[in-house]
Design a protein around this nucleic acid. Structure first.
Lengths: 171, 171
DNA sequence: CGTTGATGCTTCGAATTCGAAACAACTATG
DNA sequence: CATAGTTGTTTCGAATTCGAAGCATCAACG
């Protein structure tokens, strides 16, 4: 089990790995503070509103799409969607063609809240993150990371317990 | 309060921001699974052992250094350090010159555990992250992100409640 | 050396997070 | 259309996380 290639990472690769994790962590903290202070939102809640409001066809997504997009557990999403719904920022309704599914939609109030925090949010991202990037830095970053993201997304879709393999494995 | 520059981020910058956050999130999930399965460690615990074992002068750091480095709350660190100590992977002792401080050191057992999970950890990072980077990708990434990290680190040191400003502000 | 404020860490209670198990609706198969 | 397996979501209890408040020590200053 778990046969590992003995090769350690060279320091350069380790550094890249740690840099990504650390930058994301620091950025998240900075952003969380602003969101809490100015919009009474957690980062996850903001992400949900942002994905729904800024990057969804009709302001709607299925729970699974959201969980995979925002990157965390489905059960956690159920919880947060419940909070947002209670706050009137999103609504939930059974999915169109699949009775099991739930479609989450951002409400007008949700859009308001999003608009309210966005400027400050952008400020924080700018001052913490973008200001330390060189001229074409953000483009270069995206070019490097987008394929990585896509690659990872295509892997075991995250948040999905592989409840059992299809055919193989022992009875 | 909170005067915001109205300028929105251009899409390119937004994309970079989201890409970093998403890659870090996905990578963290992947890595967490492996650490849990093969080493019975949370990601935070692994980070603590890694910083102590691989990037600390004598395998020791103060609580504050660790909290700032690993990026999370001081109280959370107290909790995790407690768990690691109970598991015998680190030890805690009052700091040398400051009676208030606590110095955390990795134990032999801690190093063992670290060695045990490292190969699998490296495999995951490689297959999830590095494999999707082009040739000089990791170097380029580090070059871009290292200044960002340093910039952020120099900001309000994280995890430090600014309990009150020095002179200014109202009484 | 006493006072006042700053700093390092821990305790506390509340909120969030997770994975596993439970449910329910779908889908292929026979 | 009954059956068995799959998939979308929620429930559950346990573990982790947080920020605020609390404690103890340090440092500056009179």
């Amino acid at each position: 089990m778990a046969d590992h290639s003995e090769e350690p990472l060279d320091p350069e690769q380790l550094a890249a790995y740690f840099a990504v994790m650390e930058v994301a962590g620091l950025l998240r903290h900075g952003v969380e503070e602003q969101l809490r202070d100015e919009g009474d939102l957690s980062f996850v809640q903001f992400q949900l509103l942002a994905v729904l409001g800024l990057d969804s066809p009709a302001g709607s997504r299925s729970m699974t799409e959201l969980a995979d997009r925002i990157v965390f557990s489905r059960s956690g999403l159920t919880y947060q969607a419940g909070l947002l719904e209670k706050a009137g920022l999103v609504s939930r309704a059974p999915a169109a063609h699949d009775e099991r599914g739930v479609t989450v939609s951002i409400t007008a109030e949700g859009r308001e809240r999003l608009e309210r925090v966005l400027p400050g949010h952008v400020d924080v991202v700018r001052s913490l993150f973008l200001s330390a990037l060189p001229a074409q830095g953000s483009a270069a970053l995206t070019e490097l990371l987008a394929p990585v993201r896509d690659h990872m997304r295509s892997q075991p879709p995250r948040s999905r317990t592989p409840r059992r393999r299809r055919g193989s494995s022992r009875p």
